[in-house]
């Protein structure tokens, strides 16, 4: 089962939930955690994995052989990103604008364009106790996260439980991360910002046809509008975590709930059970 942990609003506790859940499932089959928040990856802070391998993420960008090139301009014409300019005797490439679609090299009539890798990030993998771990890191100054996210997801096992820690928001990096998940856990907090962004996240999951459930974090202090929204939308609140200074302190030190407050383990196992039931029921009646 592929289970994503996402949220519209940042800082609601995605990583804390994803890592605590992974650790709580110890001894219940194979568990892999993929940190797809490649702009600001944090899961490693909580899981402290032993890294056993890494690979650069390379975007294939054009390299023009100036001797073979006739300056016909076809490459510049086909590039949707204007990453190649041809004028007079010149061919200029702008690798940082290139998305690596491959159109220029394929369509060059002289076959004068080859592709070379431009590093935009790195993926690393390893393990933390019995949990398999992988994450990606977008290089500073790079704009495009999806290629790094795709590379992290390529490391997913084809069986067992895969937990994906997604980036915040609702745009392309989030879609890239959660795509293909069997379920998405949306972590929110009971504040106006939390609710506003939860609604956006729910719409995103609807669009992608991924069933979702809620983890209500830092509960008990403010209003009940999130609960009301969930009732109206028929989205289950699967776990509630109270606003608690002890939890905040543990979090600040990079300690999960599963380790810092082991009594929470059972709650996470139950959470997993509920998700499993929903996914199982859905798989049996997919038309629902």
């Amino acid at each position: 089962m592929i289970l994503s942990v996402a949220s519209g609003k940042g800082g609601t506790g995605k990583t804390l939930i994803a890592t605590s859940l992974a650790l709580s499932l110890k001894g219940r089959g194979k568990v892999q955690l993929l940190d797809c928040d490649v702009e600001e990856p944090n899961a490693h802070i909580f899981l402290k994995p032993v890294i056993s391998g890494s690979e650069e993420v390379l975007i294939p960008v054009p390299h023009v052989d100036e001797n073979t090139c006739t300056r016909c301009g076809k490459c510049a014409e086909v590039c949707a990103y204007h990453a190649i300019a041809v004028f007079g005797e010149y061919v200029l490439t702008f690798p940082e604008l290139c998305h690596g679609c491959g159109a220029c090299s394929y369509l060059c009539p002289e076959k004068a364009i080859s592709e070379e890798g431009r590093e935009s990030g790195i993926v690393e993998w390893g393990h933390s106790d019995t949990i398999e771990f992988a994450h990606g890191r977008l290089n500073i100054g790079e704009a495009m996260a999806p290629p790094v996210i795709r590379k992290v997801k390529e490391l997913a096992h084809d069986n067992g439980t895969i937990i994906i820690d997604a980036p915040p928001g609702t745009s392309c990096p989030v879609v890239e991360s959660v795509r293909g998940s069997d379920f998405c856990l949306l972590v929110t907090e009971p504040t106006p910002f939390g609710l506003n962004d939860l609604e956006l996240a729910v719409e995103t999951m609807k669009e992608l046809d991924i069933p979702c459930g809620i983890v209500l974090n830092r509960a008990g202090f403010s209003d009940d509008k999130v609960e009301a929204y969930c009732r109206k939308e028929n989205i289950p609140i699967l776990l509630t975590i109270p606003l608690d200074t002890e939890i905040a302190r543990l979090y600040s030190r990079g300690v999960t709930l599963a380790e810092g407050l082991p009594e929470w383990r059972e709650g996470f196992v139950e959470l997993y059970g509920k998700i499993w039931e929903i996914v199982d029921e859905r798989s049996r009646c997919p038309q629902r």
Partner: peptide, 19 residues
């Protein structure tokens, strides 16, 4: 022609007048 380009408008525009 660069005015409506998705990205790299400056490059498209410059290329248009460079020759």
């Amino acid at each position: 022609s660069g005015a409506t380009a998705g990205g790299g408008a400056g490059i498209a525009a410059a290329q248009q007048i460079a020759g």
